[in-house]
Write a protein that binds this DNA or RNA. Structure first.
Lengths: 225, 225
DNA sequence: TCAAAAGTGTTGAACATACACCCATGT
DNA sequence: ACATGGGTGTATGTTCAACACTTTTGA
């Protein structure tokens, strides 16, 4: 019965400056020394896969309890995907708010947010395919869940939430219809008592994530103006 | 860098006698000797994960080119999930037409279709959780893809296709609205020239799977009469 | 000619898009 | 006062569930 190394790789996405960004590290060690890659590392002997994902997340970002939504994305196991030998990678997807990343994680690798549009052709291993699957998953999850709220720091305004959809889908949405839609869907967001103190215009009400993760009639669909 | 065994487990679903059934084997060897389990086995040294899934499928069913739709379901890696030691299982989901299974696979384990409703509490390892995730995935995939056709042998009638939805979702659908919906959705099914010679009633036209895998407006939703 | 299953037409309700319009605040 | 963004009302079009009705076969 053959054995092999098992790794977790993380696709960590956020919305930042109007662009969908991924948390990317620069590799200090071979193979692919100096090139960009997804954060990740090997699963330990008696460690659960999800625990390994959380451990790597803390190590790479320097943030102990990184907020957001974590889910398993898929497993990548082509025999030649890692030049060091057989490595099966379990990829996890984290949808996170835009947090400042300390300049170096505990193992001194430089980590930072990079727009996914700038990453084509620059990632080590099969990480570009993994990232692409993660972005695709994120896009489709926004359609029938309230996970867009995982991209926002709580509390947030409806306009901030709308911007998440606009950036991830690359469309413009009507602010008025969007407002009606999310406020009238039970469990999607919870109102708070607070309002913004704002730069201009009428102050906006602030909301928290709602209870319902999965809504049957899709909230909104990409591809419409 | 720790290494571990990697296995593939298969959730093979079909619709048979008005019930959603899974292909289940009886274990001949410890651990869990004599109890029921999902088909599966260890991934070989230089074998791709999907290739391992297809190899096990052929070994367990005795059918070389099993038709249907195969996709990765998820990876299960709790450290204590297998008493033999650390085994990470990559689960695959196959949606298949109702084929007769030869009585024993090449390794002499007995394999057969069992209604998923009869399997609660009877499966070895964490296979009940894996099966349950597979059924859940199948249910939600029917909603926005044409994968229900993977459950039908080609060519099929619209009534047969409708029965797939009714069994998997546990609902009744209006035959007339269902007919209109699937025939008017481009790429969902392709008409053939043939018609059924039937037991009773007007002969039905026969169809093949269409090209479009993913439709944006959900075809139909569970939970409605 | 009747039963049974396939397939079409129609209607009223629900929902979505587009956009006119009002609200609340900073400057 | 007015610019700016937040939020509500409403008309028009599209989609959908429900069901009356027609078609095509075997017995």
């Amino acid at each position: 019965m053959p054995t092999m190394a098992v790794a977790v790789d993380l696709v960590i996405l956020t919305v930042r400056d109007g662009a969908l960004c991924a948390l990317i590290i620069e590799r200090l060690l071979p193979p692919h020394e100096g090139s960009r890659a997804l954060p990740g590392g090997f699963v330990l002997e008696d460690e659960d896969l999800e625990a390994a994902a959380y451990r790597e997340l803390a190590e790479e970002t320097g943030i102990e309890k990184f907020p957001g939504h974590l889910e398993q994305l898929g497993t990548y196991g082509k025999p030649d995907r890692d030049p060091r030998g057989r490595v099966v990678a379990v990829a996890y997807l984290l949808l996170a708010p835009d947090l400042p990343i300390p300049k170096a994680g505990s193992d001194a690798r430089h980590a930072g947010w990079i727009p996914v549009a700038d990453l084509a052709g620059t990632l080590a291993f099969d990480h570009e395919a993994i990232l692409s699957d993660g972005v695709e998953r994120a896009r489709s999850k926004l359609e029938y869940t309230n996970l867009a709220t995982a991209f926002c720091q709580s509390p947030f305004t409806i306009a901030q939430l709308r911007q998440v959809y606009e950036v991830v889908w690359g469309v413009e949405l009507d602010p008025r219809n969007f407002h009606r839609k999310v406020t009238s869907t039970p469990g999607f967001i919870e109102p708070t008592e607070e309002r913004t103190s704002h730069r201009a215009g009428r102050p906006a009400q602030l909301f928290r994530t709602g209870a319902a993760e999965s809504l049957h009639p899709p909230l909104l669909r990409p591809g419409r103006a």
